[in-house]
Design a protein around this nucleic acid. Sequence first.
DNA 1: TTTGAATATGAATATTGTTCATATTTTCTA
DNA 2: TAGAAAATATGAACAATATTCATATTCAAA
Lengths: 203, 203
Amino acid sequence: MPNKILEVKGINIPKTKLGQSKMDKLLSASEELFAKNGFYGTSISDICKRAGTAVGTFYIYFETKTDVYKYLMETYKKEIKEHLAESIRDCTTRYERERNGIKCFIKYAMTKPNVYNIIWGSLSIDRQMFVDYYVSFADSYSRGLTKDGDEVSIGDTESIAYMLMGISNFLGLKAIFKDMTDEKIDEMIDETVMPALTGGILK
Amino acid sequence: MPNKILEVKGINIPKTKLGQSKMDKLLSASEELFAKNGFYGTSISDICKRAGTAVGTFYIYFETKTDVYKYLMETYKKEIKEHLAESIRDCTTRYERERNGIKCFIKYAMTKPNVYNIIWGSLSIDRQMFVDYYVSFADSYSRGLTKDGDEVSIGDTESIAYMLMGISNFLGLKAIFKDMTDEKIDEMIDETVMPALTGGILK
DNA sequence: TTTGAATATGAATATTGTTCATATTTTCTA
DNA sequence: TAGAAAATATGAACAATATTCATATTCAAA
């Protein structure tokens, strides 16, 4: 649950203990209700009811309903980047970085299936948010791949980055659809995905 | 624009010329407005204004606003499957089928950038629609790969299918973000993507 | 303790998705 | 072709929603 409050446009950071507590409750309630009923299946009054606040309180901290959404997306983005950085910290080869990164991403997605709702759903809510998210992600990825250039297939690094992002994201989807366990995920990555990444998906 | 009317739950197919003309206009208006302003940025009265009908007319053909969305998604699904089938019809190797399939998908996405809005956005609107779409897509893909098993990397075919779907989808995203020309797309596939698919993304 | 800033509140407003009673058009039958 | 039945068109009315705002309460610093 969110405890460190991020600075995001459309968000008014509270300045007192009372305010922080109310905002925290509003954020948790939003996250839970968005996960259960979706963005548009959740009304502000639903959120406020669960958070134990009046509707007006919501609008002290969030300028619009979309802004809570943006805030949650920013939270996930930050969490994913931190998890990924941590997961590849001690790796010495690109192979290891990819293996750990993919496993990490999928396992994160499993604990928060809501990431897809939030990130992909942003296309319906605020296209620019969606574009910024993936462009920024592809940029970091691309830089990393360029550094490890001698361990990566020839060609345009940015395209390779998009390919790898696509692989992680869709394997995450599969894991969610099939409700895979951590063991099943490891098995999939070690026995199918990594061999395909090194030996080629097509023979 | 939609001319052959699909049978979809929530849709009432018109039985007269007048009805068909009205429904066509409502569908075109919906498609254009969803593309420009998104599903939730478009109101029924917006759609009806543009289509030149009364609001009540909308509800003769569509039970809810979400049902127009479902209808458009069904249309795209059908179109994509047809385009893909056509693009790989004369191929003799898996390599050719993948190359043509990926190019075809990306170019289709370029002509209708709205596909992502519709298909990925469906996560926010009707999760089951989204799941059904990709599960059914993965199933077909998987069956195709199994048939060509000797040309495909070892391991679980279904996982490979998800990897390849991820690759196509994210390269399509890149093409849209960067507004790539057909030539640039061909270049990307031929010089970066196909070598990575056969030689391995990681060395 | 005092005082201004921060916060809380929920009734009021404008907009939306949806319904429905009524009017018109189309199709089919006699 | 007449005319009845089915299909379609219409927009005012309704319930639910996101957002605003005037007022009341609480907080934090002096």
